[in-house]
Design a protein around this nucleic acid. Structure first.
Length: 575
DNA sequence: CCCGTAATAT
DNA sequence: CATATTACGG
């Protein structure tokens, strides 16, 4: 009953946003990703998904409210679909399924669930969150509420469903305002503050007051709805954390009545704090684990969670361990029914697949279960998928560009595409992949070093992963933008010149190849989006054995800069 | 006035 | 306890 638990709901990484992206010329030939449908109990049936995305040109990718990040998040959810949440969805919210056309997912897509809360969102893709589970209610108002209208994101107290209709419009008057800081004894009845004395803030309050004692009472305290939070984060991404200030964010973020600079200021503060704490927690756990690993073999591990997983992967990598992380450890999954066979492996055509090496299969994207989605790995997976799709988009776009611009030239299409597929194919899953990703194992026995990370709340988790994600995306975005510049797109040099805003550079990173603790890791991942520093250390470091991007190693993959350099070089390999 | 941080309130 | 709101100092 902890009401508090819901304040910042810790939902699956991302909520399903409508799969609204409508018609996109399926003409997109080329690679399609094959994803095995994997219902917890049902065995997979391969399905090829045409990513139905529309790719605005580079320009569109960057501005207001249409941050790549949030878009991708939607994209992923859409593609992945939230399982027809057997029950939960019951929520009547989206009762009147907005007339909007959902492009039905490619036939056979597991989730044909509906329950989409439509509403116009910045980009064509989006829609609002349909919050079946989380308690907070987001306003129905379309995001950009017509100025003046108060679309309040104010949280509604317990249970009652908000009707957009009734408006508690309270005439301006701040409900409480505390005046003098300290006079120990003087306790002002703050109830009806006299705006007179102490404070000089002549704030035109926009605070709503509780309408009645009865159920529907507005909570005075504003809580950031998930939507806004995302926009917020996206904004940070766009502008860069270090550049982030209430004002900048405010500009970057889609306008919303309830978002004031002060709110942002506050939120930002919290955001930063969380970031720090998360980083510390992670590093601590990571270090600890690494030490253990150095001593005892990997075998000694009883549980793997979060940082431990990372550490483990790292360790394995360094020691050239073929592939470990036996699924057995990781998955404490609840799959009771299916005992042995791992459904996820839908074996395509044929071919004898050797253990370590994969033939030219299509990239198999596991259908994540709810539980998995919440797990660190699952989350990472999500991002990765988003990344993939995004990249695909980019490629398509580039093809078009190329085709148009230089129809004559032969460099029109071919190269790029192949590179991509080779990437996808060549490095797909290692032997272990098994869609069964860990759901953050719970400590076994007594040695539980409960890392707070496990209990992470949305803020935390989302931030962490998003930061990592954002770093990557930022890089990608930047590169793309650079390319599009001048239209002729030559990839020669990327004299990075920040696009709007300033120069951005992602992580400066070093990749000591030793058993690294802190230093290396820290500098990589958690640097946070938009951290800028003068130093542009192009990742010239070679990632020795990193070449194989196995999905299984999502974490590692994700936490490495390899993506920025290697991958891109790979994908966009220029002539 | 804008920001970041610390102190409070909820 | 976590998060939002205010106060305060640069």
């Amino acid at each position: 009953m902890s009401a508090s638990a819901n304040l910042f709901p810790s939902p699956p990484p991302f909520n399903p946003l409508a799969r609204t992206f409508a018609a996109v010329p399926p003409n997109v030939n080329g690679s399609s990703v094959t994803m095995p449908i994997e219902t917890p109990e049902t065995v997979a049936t391969p399905v090829t998904v045409e990513a139905p995305l529309t790719l605005p040109d580079a320009a569109n990718l960057s501005n207001n409210g249409s941050s790549v990040v949030s878009n991708l998040m939607r994209v992923y959810e859409s593609l992945t679909g939230h399982g027809d949440g057997e029950t939960d969805l019951s929520n009547s919210y989206g009762k009147g399924p907005s007339p909007s056309e959902h492009t039905p997912l490619p036939q056979g897509h597991p989730s044909n669930n509906t329950a989409i809360h439509k509403s116009s969102y910045p980009l064509h893709i989006g829609s609002n969150t349909e919050s079946a589970t989380w308690s907070y209610e987001t306003t129905d108002l379309p995001y950009r509420a017509p100025t003046g209208v108060n679309g309040n994101g104010i949280r509604l107290r317990e249970g009652s469903v908000s009707e957009s209709s009734d408006h508690v419009t309270v005439g301006g008057r701040s409900l409480r305002k505390r005046s003098a800081p300290a006079p120990p004894d003087s306790k002002d009845g703050n109830e009806s503050s006299s705006s007179g004395g102490g404070g000089k803030s002549s704030r035109s309050s926009k605070v709503r007051r509780k309408g009645k004692d009865t159920d529907g009472r507005w909570s005075k305290r504003f809580t950031w709805p998930e939507d806004l939070h995302r926009d917020f984060v996206s904004a940070i991404f766009d502008v860069g954390l270090k550049q982030s200030s209430p004002s900048t964010i405010l500009e970057t973020m889609p306008k919303h009545a309830d978002v004031t600079s002060e709110r942002i200021k506050s939120h930002l503060q919290k955001y930063r704090l969380h970031r720090i704490k998360s980083k510390q927690d992670f590093m601590t756990a990571y270090d600890a684990t690494v030490r253990k690993l150095q001593k005892n073999g990997t075998g000694a591990l009883k549980s793997l969670a979060d940082a431990e997983v990372a550490a483990h992967l790292m360790h394995a990598t360094v020691h050239n361990h073929p592939t470990d992380l036996d699924p057995s450890q990781l998955s404490e999954s609840n799959d009771n029914a299916s005992s042995k066979s791992q459904p996820h492996q839908t074996h395509p055509p044929a071919h004898n697949r050797k253990k370590g090496s994969l033939p030219h299969d299509a990239l198999m994207l596991p259908q994540l279960t709810e539980k998995e989605k919440n797990s660190p790995l699952g989350t990472s997976m999500s991002y990765l998928m988003g990344l993939f799709f995004s990249l695909r988009q980019q490629l398509m776009a580039q093809r078009e560009h190329a085709a148009l611009a230089v129809a004559a030239r032969k460099l029109s299409s071919e190269p790029v595409a192949d590179v991509f597929s080779s990437f996808v194919h060549g490095h797909a899953t290692g032997s272990n992949d098994s869609g069964a990703l860990p759901s953050t194992a719970t400590a076994v026995g007594g040695s539980s070093t409960r890392s707070n990370l496990e209990q992470s709340t949305m803020m935390k988790r989302e931030m962490e992963s998003q930061m990592a994600f954002q770093n990557k995306m930022r890089a990608l975005k930047q590169q793309e933008v650079n390319k599009y510049k001048g239209d002729g797109f030559r990839m020669e040099e990327q004299h990075q010149e920040g696009l709007d805003g300033g120069e951005l550079s992602f992580d400066k990173t070093e990749h000591p190849h030793h058993l690294a603790t802190h230093e290396s890791i820290v500098s990589q991942d958690y640097q946070g989006a938009g951290e800028i520093d003068g130093d542009h250390t192009r990742g010239q470091q070679q990632h020795g054995r990193n070449r194989g991007l196995s999905i299984a190693n999502a974490e590692e993959f994700w936490n490495t800069d390899m993506v920025d350099d290697e991958l891109f070089k790979f994908l966009m390999s220029d002539p």
